[in-house]
C-alpha cells in the first residue's frame, strides 16, 4: 500500500497551477484535499505521473456572500468550514446541516468542496446537495495552443457537470475554481438526512429536500436530491406533483416519498438489497420533506439543528 512514483509540484498561484496541468496533460492529477486520491494512490488504483497540489493556491479559498444574497465558495473550501462557518449556517443551512455527516472530522479538515464535485462519487453528499440548491461550478484552464494567452473560464450548472459515477464535464486541463449558490428566500426550508452503518461511513442512502411555501402555506416548490441512489446526482422527477399548489399535508408528503422511492435507481450491495435501499429512500425522503416543510412554514432554515419542530 505504497503509491507508485510520481512528480509533485505545489504552486502558490492559480495560473501557475493551470500551466502545470496543461503541460502534464492527461498523466497529471490535481491534488485538493486528498480525501479520495491518496487512498487510490496507495491502492495503486491511480498512477499519475505528476501531482499538482492546490493546497497553497490562496485564490481558491474563501467563503463570500454576494450582494444578491448568494454565496461564492472557493473550490478549496474544506468540509470542516461548511460545518462551522457562520455565513454558511445562515445562508446555506443545508450545507451546514449535512457537513458533519461527511466522513470523519480529520478527513473534513482536509477534504474540499471542489475535490468532492470533481471526484463525482454517487455516494458523496456535496454534489447532491449543491444540485438541490441550484449551484453552478466555475472552472478554469490555461489557454490552449491557438488561443489568446491567459486564463479561460466557464460556468456550468451542477446538473450539467456530474454525468455519472466518477464522470464529470471537467476536461483534463481544467480545475474547479469556485461554486456559486443562489440566494434562498425567507419561506424556504431545507433538510438533510442520511443512513450509514457507522457515523462517517458513506451513506447507504441519503436524501436532501427543499420546499418553498407562500404566505398561506401553499407549496410553491418542492425538490428532492438523493445520495447513493443512482449513478449520478439528479433531482428526483415527479416529487413536486403531489405537493406544488397545495399545502404539504402528511398524505401528500408520503405520496412524494413513494414517487422518490419508485423513481430512484439504487444498486444492491453488501449493505442491502435494492428493495431495502428503496425502502430507506422512502423513509429518508419522507423525513426530510416533512422537516423542510416545517422549516419553510417557520420562515427559517436552522442549519445546525437536525431535530426541530
Amino acid at each position: 500500500m505504497k503509491p507508485p512514483p510520481f512528480d509533485y509540484v505545489a504552486p502558490t498561484d492559480l495560473d501557475e497551477a493551470l500551466a502545470a496541468l496543461a503541460d502534464a496533460g492527461e498523466d497529471a492529477r490535481v491534488l485538493a484535499g486528498g480525501q479520495s486520491l491518496i487512498p487510490m494512490l496507495n491502492f495503486r488504483l491511480a498512477a499519475p505521473v505528476k501531482l499538482i497540489d492546490l493546497n497553497r493556491v490562496s485564490e481558491l479559498s474563501g467563503i463570500e456572500r454576494r450582494p444578491d444574497g448568494g454565496l461564492v465558495l472557493g473550490a478549496m473550501t474544506r468540509h470542516r468550514q461548511l460545518e462551522r462557518d457562520a455565513t454558511i449556517a445562515e445562508y446555506a443551512p443545508l450545507l451546514a446541516e449535512a457537513a458533519p455527516w461527511i466522513a470523519h472530522a480529520p478527513i473534513r479538515t482536509r477534504g474540499t468542496i471542489g475535490g468532492s464535485i470533481a471526484h463525482a462519487d454517487p455516494a458523496a453528499e456535496l454534489p447532491a446537495l449543491l444540485l438541490l440548491l441550484g449551484a453552478s461550478v466555475r472552472v478554469a484552464r490555461a489557454a490552449r495552443d491557438g488561443e489568446a494567452p491567459g486564463r479561460v473560464e466557464r460556468t456550468l450548472p451542477l446538473d450539467d457537470f456530474c454525468f455519472g459515477p466518477f464522470f464529470t464535464a471537467l476536461e483534463a486541463d481544467e480545475v474547479i475554481t469556485r461554486i456559486d449558490i443562489p440566494p434562498c428566500g425567507p419561506l424556504e426550508g431545507t433538510a438533510f438526512e442520511e443512513f450509514a452503518r457507522r457515523r462517517g461511513d458513506y451513506a447507504i442512502a441519503g436524501a436532501a429536500s427543499r420546499m418553498i411555501l407562500d404566505e398561506d402555506g401553499t407549496c410553491l416548490h418542492a425538490a428532492v436530491s438523493l445520495i447513493n441512489a443512482g449513478p449520478a446526482p439528479a433531482l428526483v422527477a415527479g416529487v413536486e406533483e403531489p405537493l406544488v399548489g397545495r399545502p404539504p399535508t402528511e398524505d401528500r408528503l408520503a405520496e412524494a416519498a413513494d414517487v422518490a422511492s419508485a423513481g430512484c435507481d439504487p444498486a444492491p450491495d453488501m449493505h442491502g438489497s435494492e428493495a431495502y435501499r428503496r425502502h430507506l429512500v422512502r423513509v429518508l425522503v419522507l423525513r426530510t420533506l416533512a422537516r423542510a416543510a416545517r422549516r419553510a412554514a417557520a420562515g427559517r432554515t436552522p442549519g445546525i439543528e437536525t431535530e426541530d419542530g
Partner: peptide, 18 residues
C-alpha cells in the same frame, strides 16, 4: 446481522416495502 439483513428477514419476499 445487519440492518439490511434484518430488513430482509422481515420482508422475506424482498419485494415488499413493509
Amino acid at each position: 446481522l445487519s440492518p439490511g439483513k434484518l430488513f430482509a428477514l422481515r420482508n422475506p419476499a424482498d419485494g415488499g416495502e413493509d
